[in-house]
Design a binder for these strands. Structure first.
Lengths: 77, 77
DNA sequence: TACGAATGGGGTAATTCGGGGT
DNA sequence: CCTGTCCGAATTACCCCATTCG
């Protein structure tokens, strides 16, 4: 089972989270995400790690993609 | 296929709805809209999700890839 | 080797978070 | 029931420049 761990650059992760590349670097410094360092000192992140964060740490979302959209039901007040 | 979902910040969504960022946060807390949290604790919203809410409560398709649906409107008090 | 683009580090401003109360 | 505002604290975003990457 060789998991294909694609390495992502801070800019890639930043675009995924809609944050600044500097912020992603800060997460690695805080130990909130695994980081692989290049000989030069730059950081690289595993796609598996990032994807897991994006999906949400908690399973069983609310409602779950049944209908999909949010609040799609009849809303009468 | 492209699951391109632009993430919006609470301030962006708040400006779209003409409400305070705090109110948007409250919607997410109530489960009325799906929210992705950054390792830092800040929330990000999907443009697809927000756009649908803006157009009206008509739902149906899960918009672009959102997969994450937050609550099917069926339940209501 | 040189070059363009991105990254890292530090510091400061803006935004967001969470709870409480109108 | 829902929203807008207050407070303190945390996180994030943008500025600079030197170094690294491909």
């Amino acid at each position: 089972m060789d998991s294909e761990d694609r390495l992502l650059t801070p800019g890639e992760v930043a675009a995924l989270f809609r944050v600044d590349p500097k912020t992603v670097t800060r997460w690695a410094a805080a130990g909130r995400i695994s980081s692989i360092r290049t000989p030069g000192g730059h950081r690289r992140f595993r796609e598996s790690e990032v994807k897991k964060l994006l999906l949400g740490e908690l399973g069983g979302g609310a409602g779950g993609g049944g209908g999909g959209g949010a609040g799609a039901g009849s809303d009468h007040h």
